[in-house]
Design a protein around this nucleic acid. Structure first.
Lengths: 263, 263
DNA sequence: TAAATGTTGTTGCTAATATAACAACAAGGT
DNA sequence: ACCTTGTTGTTATATTAGCAACAACATTTA
């Protein structure tokens, strides 16, 4: 009989987050390695106590991960991984749907009451969240959109979002280089960094980071993309006068430097 | 201050299966209903003990469900439900991917060793699983495919699968009616049930069920679709001589009856 | 200014619950 | 008589939930 050869811990964790317990995972994996095992064999292969194997198998059948024979003793067989994982995901996705709907009810209530976060500075974690916020900012712009960011960030994450800015609103972009054709939709300001290096201007402070940038909309809402600190990128968002003013000045200053350098 | 108004239990369960604990769910929901709450306010709104609120908020930030302000005291805000649920699903889907890959490794090992389930009868639960098995049967057919099933099951689940049968293999279908054009790819045998009713033949035993059918491939592999017993449909699958013979005779008999009735 | 009060954020401990593991046994087959 | 299957109840163990106490700091009051 096969040994209850041990299972990578990462796999157990993954299966747990798909809704299986440790035993369910072990039994399913054990069954994948055999064809039609009895409960006792399942116990031997998976290392799960024999008595626990019965309820576990019941649950796995319920979850559409194993099928049962009609012999006595019963024999069990695993559904192929693709199929099985899909069966699990179906349940989870349906949960996600209903959760989303129920949560929206709560969320809508808040929308009515005005937002009181005008003076606060928020930290946003995760690129997805940052991009969503940026899209919201650009989409609701009424007078101006100003972007000062490294090319990598523009290319990878920001440019598609800028499309959502309303047409009449001017979009200023300051960056250190541009690949591909220069779009007429935006007002581009390229910083000749290579050239600047040779002047005595403090170029290291111009665009000193990889993957960073500042974004200002309507002179009233600012977002600071801080790049990846500990794995996932984070950003600051604020509508406070202070931070907006800071960003306002920062962009102006850099643009002025750029002009000076070109001359 | 808002009351910790209670939360539908189904929602808590859904969020749990997305990987949140009860507290995490309560705090997230509480935050959805406010704009920028301090830890203490979160405690008041969600009903979660104040001391527990801090670690819970940490975890929610980690999971990209809430953002933090930079004030003292810190203020917390929830990301919108759509976004939040999507962030959770991203983790789960990545787990699903890695689990599928890891499981496949185990599964492949078994593929090599010949299948020893020739004499067994398997119960398959869930329409998805049944259809997968049927697709496998049809796809690997070498000499014959025979189908005896009610029209509802054919139309809803089986016909698309039959396309996967190799071209030279003859496909016989026996059913009680046919909507749409009759495909030349299959040999159709329509049972004039309405007419049969008036004879003294035991028509009730011909196609007595809703949503049922039998499938036979190469005279060696049979599947009995048993319809929905307790919610989800189930089926028997077997390569055993006994069951195959039974199905063989069943199909033949019904076909003969049909001929007799037409005459 | 100093004491009183209140709030934030931490730490460590206890209670409740879900999961895991074991022991014992009835039913049936050899 | 023996072995195996399947069931039941009981005991550990881990995770989650809940509580109490406190240091740090800010705000109020005498």
């Amino acid at each position: 009989m096969k040994a209850p050869r041990d299972v990578p811990n990462a796999l157990l964790e993954s299966l747990k987050s798909l809704g299986l317990t440790k035993y369910e995972a072990l039994v399913y994996i054990g069954l994948l390695r055999t064809a039609g095992a009895t409960a006792t064999e399942v116990h031997e292969i998976s290392g799960v106590p024999r008595a626990s194997v019965y309820p576990v198998l019941d649950r796995l059948v319920q979850k559409e991960l194993v099928s049962v024979s009609h012999t006595t003793p019963k024999r069990f067989d695993a559904v192929p991984p693709d199929q099985g994982v899909e069966n699990l995901m179906r349940r989870i996705e349906s949960d996600a749907r209903s959760a989303r709907e129920a949560l929206d009810v709560f969320y809508r209530e808040k929308e009515l009451e005005g937002r009181g976060d005008r003076e606060l500075v928020w930290t946003i974690y995760g690129e997805e969240n940052i991009r969503t916020r940026l899209a919201g900012m650009f989409g609701s712009a009424e007078r101006s959109v100003e972007v000062l960011a490294t090319w990598d960030i523009l290319k990878g994450s920001v440019l598609p979002l800028l499309e959502s800015a309303p047409d009449p609103v001017p979009v200023d972009i300051v960056t250190e280089r541009w690949e591909g054709e220069q779009p007429s939709r935006f007002r581009l300001h390229i910083l000749p960094l290579a050239g600047l290096r040779e002047t005595r201007l403090p170029t290291e402070n111009l665009l000193p980071y990889e993957q960073s940038g500042v974004f200002l909309v309507d002179n009233s809402r600012a977002l600071l993309w801080m790049g990846a600190v500990d794995g996932q990128p984070s950003a600051l968002y604020s509508e406070s006068e202070g931070l907006v003013l800071f960003v306002r000045r920062h962009i102006t200053t850099v643009t002025e430097w750029a002009k000076a350098a070109v001359q």
